[in-house]
Simulated scan of single mutants.
Amino acid sequence: MTVYLLRRLIQAAGVVLAMSVIVFIGVYAIGDPVEILISPDADQFERERAIRAFGLDRPLWQQYFTFLGRALQGDLGRSFVFNEPALKLILQRMPATLELAVGATVVALIIGVPLGLYAGLKPESPVSKGVMAASILGFSLPTFWVGLMLILVFAVQLGWLPSTGRGETVEVLGMRWSFLTADGLAHMVMPAVNLSLFKISLVIRLTRAGVRETMLMDFVKFARAKGLSPRRVIAVHVLKNIMIPVVTVVGLEFGGTIAFSVVTESIFAWPGMGKLIIDSINVLDRPVIVAYLMIIVLMFIVINLVVDLTYSVLDPRVRLEAKGA
C-alpha cells in the first residue's frame, strides 16, 4: 500500500506541474488586465508603472518560473484588484463552496440511493416508472431555471425560505461556517437542492442499473437459496456491491460540484469561490484565476485518491491488488 501511495503521489506531482503550465499560459496569454484596471484617462507613464507593478513587462516564460518558484513556497500571487494574496481570497470563500457541495452530495445520496434501489428491485411498478421519468427531468432541466423557480415558489410566493445570501455563520477552526446555525441552514436549503438535482438523477440511474445487474449474479441466488432474508440479501450482498460505481461517480461529481457551482452561487448570491472567479474573470484578475484553477486541480487529485482508497474498504480485491503492486 505504501508503494502504491508513493506512486500515486509522484503521478499527482507530474499532473500538477503539467496543469500549472497549461493554466498559466492559457490565462496570461489572453487579454490585457491593464486596459480594464487602469483608467482610460491615465497617461503612458502611469500605464507603464502599472505594467511593471503587475510584473507584466517580463516575458511569459519568466513570469511562469517566478510564479512556480513562489507557488512552491505557498504563494500563488497577489490579486490585481484587492492587492491581497490570491490564496487568502480563495480560502476565505472556500468554506461556503465546500459546505454547499457537501450538502448537495449528501442530498443526492439520501434521495438517489433509496429511489434507485426501489426502482431496481421493482422495475415494473408505477412508482419506479415515475422515479425514472423524474430522473430524466433532473438531467434535462437547466440549473439556472430551476434555481429561479425555487426562489419564486419557496421564497417569493410561500415565504418559507430566504432567497439569497449565506445567512448567519459561526467561526470554527478559523473559518466561517453557516450549516451550524439554523439561519445558515435555511439559506443553504435551496442552493443545495438546486445543485443536487443532476446528481440525484445520476445516482438513481447508477443504483438502478447496479441493482438490476447484481440481482442476476450467482452469489445473490446462492444467498437466497441459503434462506437469507430479502432485507439481508439486499443490505449485505446487493447494496455493498453496487456502491463501488456509485462512490466513483459521486466522488468525481463532488469535484465537479466544487468547480462548477458558479451558476448556483450566482443565482442565490452565495459568497463562494464560484462567485469570486466570475468577478475575477470580469476584471481579468489573473493571479486569482490561476490560483483558483490550481486549487481545483489539487482538489480533483485528492478526491481521486480518496475514491481509490475507498475502494479498498468496499472491495477486498482492491486491497489485494494494492499489496501486489
Rank of each mutant, 00 (worst) to 15 (best):
M1L: 02
T2S: 15
A12C: 05
V16C: 14
L17N: 11
A18V: 09
A18R: 08
Y28A: 14
I30M: 04
L37F: 08
S39G: 12
A42Y: 12
A42G: 14
G55Q: 07
P59A: 03
T66Y: 05
P85A: 03
A86P: 10
L87W: 03
M94I: 06
P95N: 10
P95W: 11
A104Y: 01
I111A: 13
V113Q: 04
Y118A: 02
G120L: 08
E124G: 03
S125A: 11
S125L: 10
P126Y: 10
G130S: 13
V131N: 05
V131E: 03
S140M: 14
T143L: 13
T143H: 07
G147K: 00
G147V: 03
M149T: 05
V153N: 13
Q157W: 14
G159K: 11
L161T: 10
P162A: 11
T169M: 12
W177Q: 14
L180I: 01
M188P: 05
M190H: 06
V193K: 05
V203H: 02
L216Y: 01
D218R: 12
G227A: 09
V233G: 02
N241A: 14
V247L: 07
V247F: 01
T248R: 08
T248I: 08
L252S: 12
V262N: 01
T264V: 15
S266W: 03
G274N: 05
L284C: 08
A291W: 00
Y292N: 01
M294R: 08
V307S: 01
D308S: 12
T310N: 03
T310C: 07
T310R: 09
D315Y: 03
